[in-house]
Design a protein around this nucleic acid. Structure first.
Lengths: 200, 200
DNA sequence: CCCGTTATTGACATGCCGTCAATAGACACG
DNA sequence: CGTGTCTATTGACGGCATGTCAATAACGGG
């Protein structure tokens, strides 16, 4: 028969939660977020569907928590550039590295980030987190960096840091997401290069 | 009572369809796509929910058709730049105008475009249309333009037209969507300027 | 070994979806 | 003007996924 999940097994809450998170992530490696259903996740865990709700509010809560495991890493990589020296050519090199590393993160966590982006369009809470915990923070950081560059005379003075940063971040985000966040399209040194080249 | 839609009224199919399209559009002026429900649309039409299915397969079909009313206009505006002369400073001016005009389209049809983008994450068919009827076409067009620029020596020769075009389009799309496609954030000459400035 | 704690689940209620047979406007024709 | 036909319209139904809750049964301590 099909619904046989074997005898009940009782796990420590923390283990169960990890199991579910892993199942969710595994699911997203194979399917887009739109196909993610609570049932679809839980069959992979040996637990019943209702068990899911003991640990997560809903599937949006799940992807949000998956994002937490990525957010830190993403920032760790970007800080290199954002807090780097303001020097001319040197800074340029740092930027290249940061972008490469950042892209690498996208390659690795692409499916999860992709899911977050999709979920943001479906759930107000996810949109909130996505926008404010990730995007907006990046924008603020980049804006600060730009301000410094403007003061140092590296960037033209008639640039609005805030608005320019927003453009930069959103633009990069979208392109990276489309390039690395989908199952079909995959890495390629070249594409990483293009990201950099396009940003000048 | 509340459910009283009055006596049945029989319309010409074409009128009914227009009415529903209008209702859908009006709905999107006030709510994000995620809140759009067939019932929510139909109450605005004086028709019953099932009537919807006589004209549209589902709500994704509805937004797709709404997009059709926008696509042509969007292209009409962009062609100016895409097919414009290859000249140096002159082309630059044309590009500014095209972007302004394009942004104008986003302001006007922002809610619909926004809905399409959101729906693309939820429905494979919409994603297909969004990507292939809009984004990909723009990419191809822009790539052609870039190729010409490269040949003419205007743009650096080590640029991959296809990949660069993809980056350009996706980047612009995202920024415009975020800037003009949301109820809160709204136009501003300055933002239009930034779009242009960031693209060099 | 037994018992209390609590992880787990079967069963239920809800909400929106998409379909279909039955109903009743509108128009054409006598 | 009737009156009959065509078809726009809808009430009612079945289905799928969600989120909740009371009942159940593992585990761990005594």
């Amino acid at each position: 028969m099909s619904g046989d999940r074997g005898p009940r097994r009782r796990r420590r809450p923390e283990e169960a939660e990890r199991t579910i998170l892993a199942a969710g992530r595994a699911f997203l490696e194979e399917h887009p977020f739109r196909e993610m259903t609570v049932e679809g996740i839980m069959v992979r865990t040996g637990l019943s569907r209702p068990a899911f709700y003991a640990y997560f509010r809903d599937r949006y809560d799940l992807v949000t928590r998956l994002l937490e495991g990525v957010g830190g890493l993403l920032f760790a990589l970007d800080w290199h550039w954002l807090s780097g020296a303001v020097g001319g050519d040197e800074a340029r090199e740092v930027l290249v590295d940061a972008l490469r590393a950042g892209s690498q993160t996208f390659v690795e966590y692409g499916p999860v980030l992709r899911a977050i982006a999709d979920a943001a369009g479906q759930d107000a809470k996810v949109e909130e987190v996505y926008r404010n915990r990730l995007i907006e923070r990046l924008i603020v950081a980049v804006a600060a960096r730009i301000s410094r560059d403007v003061e140092a005379g590296i960037s033209p003075g008639d640039l609005d840091p805030e608005e320019t940063a927003r453009a930069l971040v959103l633009m990069t985000e979208r392109y990276l997401l489309d390039t690395f966040g989908r199952p079909e399209r995959r890495p390629s040194r070249e594409q990483t290069e293009v990201v950099f080249a396009t940003l000048e």
